[in-house]
């Protein structure tokens, strides 16, 4: 028995992991229950930053991620968009990742077009699309948006878009929301947008678990709120739903909370694996000493 675990083929671990994720997804998907969520301070800050803005404020949503991190960041993007809609904010979508454009399209199609068809393109939201150049783009648009964005993602000249009238740079935005999977992302937004204009640009962000530790140094001065990984998404989602969800919440707005189920079981597996690894290590060492 011990020998089996000592030389455990890692494929058994893979199988355990697969089951730990697949079974909860199946069960939760079938019975449509989610675990209760207790929002912590960083998610509450994000919620308040958006919620405390007067209705109809201008919000820049920068979706800097790709399908690779959709699992973590998609629910955040959904919740951010929904929250802005409910607050009647004007949404300006941009992307610094080439594939971020598709992420914007997803949000627009899944949420705005599907559930809020009364919102009009160019008046309530605009998709400025992707621009290459990474942090260079941020540096330019903080002072001059039109230098890079002469058209929106559909090729319409920005001058012809009603909600772009009078927008010269992103200092005029009331809030910048960044959903970030890496470089360029929240760090660059902090460095090149918030740092030079600390009292003009306010930023909140949602990021992947990997990035979160790197962004803690910027909290709270440059970054008042941060959603870290699916847990942060789930906390924020629960806040948005508690206030704006109503009675019958569509399943697509509960994605993060649903996904906390497999998360929990898989975490317990990880914890079990770490303990098991150490038990094996200590037993092995004791036997080694005896010999």
């Amino acid at each position: 028995m011990f020998e089996f675990f000592r030389n455990l083929d890692r494929r058994w671990i893979f199988l355990m992991m697969f089951l730990c994720v697949a079974v909860p997804i199946f069960v939760i998907g079938k019975y449509k229950t989610t675990f209760p969520e207790k929002p912590l301070v960083l998610a509450t800050n994000v919620f308040n930053e958006i919620d405390n803005l007067p209705d109809g404020s201008k919000v820049l949503l920068a979706f800097d991620y790709d399908p690779g991190s959709e699992g973590e960041l998609g629910p955040m993007a959904t919740a951010f968009t929904l929250h802005c809609i409910k607050k009647h904010h004007k949404m300006y979508f941009i992307a610094l990742w080439p594939l971020g454009r598709q992420m914007i399209d997803n949000a627009v199609n899944r949420i705005i077009k599907a559930d809020f068809p009364h919102l009009r393109y160019g008046e309530d939201y605009v998709n400025l699309g992707f621009k290459a150049g990474n942090e260079g783009v941020i540096k330019v648009i903080v002072t001059d948006l039109r230098k890079l964005y002469t058209t929106d993602s559909r090729g319409t000249a920005t001058d012809e878009i009603p909600m772009m009238q009078g927008i010269e740079n992103i200092q005029q935005m009331d809030l910048v929301i960044n959903v970030s999977a890496g470089y360029p992302g929240t760090k660059e937004w902090v460095q090149y947008a918030v740092t030079p204009f600390p009292d003009r640009i306010r930023l909140v962000a949602g990021c992947t678990g990997v990035q979160a530790p790197l962004l803690y140094p910027y909290i709270p001065q440059q970054l008042p709120g941060l959603l870290a990984a699916i847990k942060g998404a789930s906390e924020y989602e629960s806040l948005v739903m508690a206030k704006y969800g109503g009675e019958n919440i569509s399943g697509k707005y509960l994605e993060a909370q649903r996904r906390m189920g497999p998360q929990l079981v898989a975490h317990l597996l990880m914890i079990f694996l770490i303990i098991a690894g150490n038990v094996i290590y200590f037993v092995e060492r004791r036997r080694g000493v005896r010999q």
Partner: peptide, 29 residues
Amino acid sequence: PTTQEPTAEAPGEPAQASAPEEAAALPEE
């Protein structure tokens, strides 16, 4: 010849940090 200096008086609205509670929360500003 764009005006690049960050202190330039941008024609936009005044800075957001006018709300009293925000000013209190961020004394550094």
